[in-house]
Design a binder for these strands. Structure first.
Length: 555
RNA sequence: GGCCCAAUGGUCAAGAGGUUAAGACACCACCCUUUCACGGUGGAAUCCCGGGUUCGAUUCCCGGUUGGGUCACCA
């Protein structure tokens, strides 16, 4: 059975051959044009914008075509794995509404192409590695870390390409007898691919957004199995995406450099490579320079950052979609109410140059996303955020949900909804004054108003205020007060001849606004008063009446 | 350093061998408005450089520059 003298030594437990796996994982029975894509993160506990960016493309490509979107966990690097890393991944995708059809789930694996965690696929990789070994396309390598370092130094000195290739691949042709002796002596080894490539050759590879790439052929004898028998990314990618029958591999452009390795591995296994789509990196401005968002330096790369700041998941997703397909923005403008999934996503529309991640733009998208929600939805999400990030505020919000929803409903809906809330964190600033613990009035005299006038205004208004007044009656009372203290009741008139008046009805309402909301900007004052209720309004009016109003600081 | 990718306003970008070079964010001004927000109108602002092909190049080709990526028993 074993044709290679080392086959039984290296893979004593393996009797199956790749052909057996072909039967175990047959090509998927899908309609023409249906795409199979995958998300294949490492369980490092860290999910970032780039992961989401690619995943949105994956999900759309699959589901828009009636295909399959699955989750594979790339846990081949045990050093980087963290406890709960998989749960983090699952949570993030749940939160962002990117449903997997297959793969790792919280309830175990789902689907016929698993296992979906790479460490559980050891046998599959070994079957394939054994096949390469027997075909003379792989060999055990005993080079130590020190030897590898020394090799690099030599290569640097001689200005040669780095790596294990040609004459540097010292373990290539160690006689089988010697290999056997060293392994039996307990020497550590890895399994390397035996590259047949030549530096002079160039290969052509198609990329779905970059077109045909012309790349140098791989000459490296890359490691395919590490000394612990776990595959490297290169080998796992090739084996998994073949047997999981992936149609399109969406990944970051950092993989462009190693594409020739993958192409060569597919060819060595006698398989057809999937289609590739290498996405551009998300960048950020660092001083005057543009650079890739970095895990270490940029907190805003982590998805958790957006959760903490209170950006709705839908907002981050919409913004990323705009970077993915810039025509999404126009589509959204034309279809404000449609779900994002109705947008005809196109791989061709994806850009190849790195986009700067623009917080200001995200803010705008987020404002719009939140403005489109109804009060109930806004309440649910806000309450959820507060519960996780600001317990005291959460308590205030949920003490009387109907009250909070009423506050949230002011200016919401209709053709021109207010866009005051950018993030749930920021909602506290906007909404805080509704709640006694956060009501911190700033009794600064507005323009045109003196402390004496303030006293008169409250003397009058506390008597005039009637919570059942309609908008006209409500404003009429402020006009009456304005007229009584020598202010213009009519704004047009005031604007025509301001010199005739000490102030105007706007100044009167400003005094009331400060009393009720504690500040000079607020949504519609009458509606705010309705939401607060008569008792609270009167309480605030009384407090303002007796407060020491300060003159505005000189500009 | 080798190899690879990219380059249109401050940002995201559409775009075609001949256009007044879209649109969005941000910015400025004005209008609307009892404040703010919304909305409206207008404004400033872009084809990296040098060659070549062409009647004509921001667009195609070559070179350079700049930025980015990658050269692990990490992915």
């Amino acid at each position: 059975m074993d044709q290679h003298p080392l086959s039984a030594l290296l893979f004593p437990d393996i009797s199956a051959v790749p052909a057996d796996l072909e039967g175990r994982f047959p090509p998927r029975a899908l309609a023409d044009g249906a795409r199979v894509t995958r998300m294949a993160p490492s369980p490092t506990g860290f999910m970032h914008l780039g992961n989401l960016y690619g995943a949105i493309a994956d999900e759309r490509l699959a589901h828009q075509s009636g295909g399959v979107f699955y989750l594979r966990i790339e846990d081949t690097d045990q050093k980087r794995e963290v406890e709960g890393g998989v749960a983090t991944i699952l949570n993030v995708f749940g939160e962002y509404g990117l449903p997997f059809d297959e793969g790792v789930t919280s309830g175990g694996d789902k689907g016929a192409y698993g296992p979906y965690r790479q460490r559980q696929r050891r046998e599959i990789y070994h079957i394939c590695a054994k096949h390469l070994l027997e075909a003379g396309l792989a060999y055990p390598c005993f080079l130590t870390e020190e030897e590898l370092n020394a090799m690099r130094e030599t290569q640097a000195e001689q200005k040669l390409d780095f790596g294990c290739y040609g004459a540097f691949a010292k373990s290539r042709d160690i006689p089988a007898e010697e290999v056997k002796r060293r392994i039996e002596a307990g020497e550590q080894y890895v399994v390397r691919f035996r590259s047949s490539g030549s530096a002079e050759n160039r290969i052509k590879v198609d990329d779905m957004i970059r077109g045909t790439l012309e790349l140098p052929e791989n000459i490296q004898d890359v490691v395919i199995l590490k000394s612990d028998g776990i595959p490297t990314y290169h080998f796992a990618h090739v084996v998994d995406d073949h047997f999981m029958r992936t149609g399109i591999v969406v990944r970051g452009e950092e993989w462009l450099a190693t594409l020739p390795i993958h192409v060569q591995l597919f060819a060595a296994m006698g398989w057809k490579a999937p289609k590739y789509l290498h996405t551009a990196h998300l960048m950020k401005m660092d001083g005057a320079a543009k650079r890739k968002l970095s895990k270490r330096k940029d907190p805003e790369l982590a998805l958790s950052f957006y959760g903490e700041e209170g950006y709705p998941a839908a907002a981050v997703k919409e913004y990323l979609m705009m970077l993915l397909n810039s025509n999404f923005e126009d589509w959204r403008l034309a279809n404000p109410a449609l779900p994002m999934e109705d947008f005809p996503f196109s791989a061709k529309k994806m850009g190849t140059s790195g986009a700067l991640f623009d917080m200001a733009k995200l803010d705008d998208v987020s404002r719009n996303v939140i403005a489109r929600m109804d009060a109930d939805e806004a309440y649910e999400l806000l309450a959820l955020w507060a519960l996780a990030h600001d317990v005291a505020f959460a308590a205030a919000l949920s003490k009387d949900p109907a009250f909070t929803k009423a506050a949230l409903a002011i200016g919401r809906g209709g053709k021109k909804p207010r866009k005051d809330i950018t993030t749930w964190r920021g909602a506290k600033e906007y909404l805080g004054f509704f709640y006694t613990p956060y009501f911190a009035p700033d009794f600064t005299l507005p323009q045109n108003v003196t402390a004496e006038k303030v006293a008169v205004i409250f003397d009058e208004y506390t008597h005039l205020y009637n919570e059942t007044d309609d908008a006209d009656a409500w404003f009429g009372k402020l006009k009456d007060i304005a007229a009584a203290i020598g202010y213009a009741a009519d704004m047009k008139e005031y604007k025509q001849s301001p010199e005739n008046y000490e102030g105007n009805v706007g100044d009167v309402s400003m005094v009331v606004r400060i009393a009720v909301t504690g500040r000079q900007q607020s949504p519609d004052l009458r509606e705010v008063m309705c939401v607060l209720g008569k008792a609270e309004v009167l309480r605030r009016l009384e407090a303002a009446k007796t407060a020491a109003w300060q003159a505005a600081p000189a500009q």
